[in-house]
Amino acid sequence: MTIQNKPAANKNLDSIRKTIANHKRHDFIFASLGTLVIASLTITLLILFLDLVIDGYPRFNLDFFSNFPSRRAARAGILSAWIGSSLVLLVTFFVAVPLGITSGVYLEEYAKKNWFSDLIEINVSNLAGVPSIIYGLLALGLFVYSFGLGQSILTAGLTLALLMLPIVIVSTREAIRSIPVHIREAAYAVGATKWQVCRNHVIPYSYGGILTGVIIGMARAIGETAPVITIGALTFIAFLPPSPIGLEPPFINFDWLESGFTVLPIQMFNWISRPQLAFHVNAAATGAVIIMLTLLMNGFAIKLRYNIRKKIKW
């Protein structure tokens, strides 16, 4: 049987099959392209990370984490840097997250949609793309000199919080928008007030998305150097800020907020610009620590998000 003799229906079927095969081929090409891109990105990161780990391997011991900076590379450690980074991030977290979430909820649920809220929306989105050094300069003028907060952990935390705020706001709004309308309508239908809808439905359901924003923001904050240097972070500091937790009542004190500090990226930068090779080993080790911290934070957030999503039953 030749093609010319095929009945019309058969011919039609052939062309459909051809189309399907064609689409499947496109599908396959796209999927492989995607895999390729993901793989090359992951492999690049992995190579960079492994390179840091291998270079810094000799310094991965307890001393490195429990020693202050020193002129002798083998004795130098990152104690003041990792404690500084943690305390700064603590302030950043407690300022940026509540402010960011409430702003996001307000803008999305309560604010009237008019030119003013449009203006705010555009500005918030724009802020997310402003170079970090600008935040540093703003903070230097505002926090350090106008408010007189000095070159302290509090100033650094607030600065990085500013940096993180737009990211949290935008992701909160995106997360709220992705909640189906019928959830809200159902809640209103049984007589819930706006606040009850927000508190019991909208906010809990958008935790996953909000968390993603928080983590992206925190990961950005931990690696920031420029604004922290601008506001006057130190490089050599061989003592720790006063402990946030005391043995005597009231058990919590806030003296540490006023303390000078250094952070991990600054310590790394200082070491990489030294002539002695031994310091470059320290820099590599510090780099590996920063990446591991970021991974740890991300991993924790993904786990948390997974648990939250599991609980949501629509």
């Binding site: 300022v95 997250v97 509540p98 007189g148 907060l149 000095g150 509090l154 907020l257 000078g260």
Partner: peptide, 17 residues
């Protein structure tokens, strides 16, 4: 969170090194 933020803001005024 509210308490912590308020405290931070309160203390910030007296933060003179």
């Amino acid at each position: 969170i509210f308490t912590v933020v308020t405290t931070i803001l309160l203390f910030s005024n007296s933060a003179i090194a």
